[in-house]
């Protein structure tokens, strides 16, 4: 029997991972390995216990639908407005963007990040790729970044700090206040620096 992913209870900050769909187990594993008390979140009640939230890679249309169907969307929006640190990767970045381009009819996001993000911005799976990215805030060496049918940030408001861009200038990592988002998937590569950066922000917010 599979059951819920088994996660050891660490003594670090309690961090939720939105577990409606996608690669949430990979995020739980990385966060646990860094000492966080990482927990899957599928219900509104589970939000009250967490000091930070990761929204994983997956399909944003599915996460949107399920988060609304099970009453998570509104409490999540409230939590974001009241300063909960949130880190979104790929679909998670779409979920915390104020504006989603190439959304399906009726698709909503939680919002919070003052950006316009375009879904599937590179094309089909054939255009998915991996590459090394310089991310000054994480220092050397470059981060090996995996882009899978990835979104990009097409426009960002004045309060948004760009953390990284591709060589052609397209923006793929941003932060604003307590929100952090990347087009790519640090949970897939074994490089934990982005998660450590996020955990520092979670600790600082407590």
């Amino acid at each position: 029997m599979a059951g819920r992913p088994s996660v050891s209870r660490n003594t670090g900050p309690v961090v939720g991972v939105l577990a409606l769909q996608g690669d949430f187990r990979e995020h739980l594993a990385v966060l646990s390995s860094l000492g966080a008390d990482a927990r899957p979140v599928r219900r509104p009640a589970e939000l009250s216990e967490i000091g930070g939230l990761v929204i994983p890679g997956g399909e944003s249309t599915v996460m949107d639908k399920l988060s609304r169907a099970f009453g998570l969307a509104e409490p999540l929006k409230d939590a974001i407005r009241s300063g909960l640190p949130v880190y979104g990767t790929c679909a998670g970045l779409i979920m915390i963007a104020d504006t989603v381009l190439d959304a399906i009819s009726g698709q909503q996001s939680l919002g919070g990040l003052d950006i316009s993000v375009r879904r599937n911005a590179f094309g089909s799976q054939l255009d998915s790729f991996e590459t090394d990215l310089d991310i000054p805030v994480l220092g050397a060496p470059p981060v090996h970044a995996v882009f899978i049918r990835a979104p990009i940030v097409e426009a960002a408001g004045p309060d948004v700090r760009v953390l990284s861009s591709l060589p052609d200038g397209r923006v793929v990592a941003v932060e604003q206040g307590s929100l952090l988002g990347t087009s790519f998937h640090p949970e897939m590569t074994g490089d934990t620096r982005f998660h450590e950066y996020f955990l520092d922000r979670v600790r600082a917010a407590q």
């Binding site: 997956g58 399909e59 590459t131």
Partner: peptide, 27 residues
């Protein structure tokens, strides 16, 4: 033209191929 022009960039790698399936999990 949509792919960034870095020497370390690779398309169609095992990680990228297996990675899409990872994103479909729970679906």
């Amino acid at each position: 033209s949509t792919t960034p022009g870095s020497d370390t960039t690779s398309l169609g790698s095992s990680r990228v191929k297996r990675g899409l399936a990872e994103m479909l999990k729970g679906g």
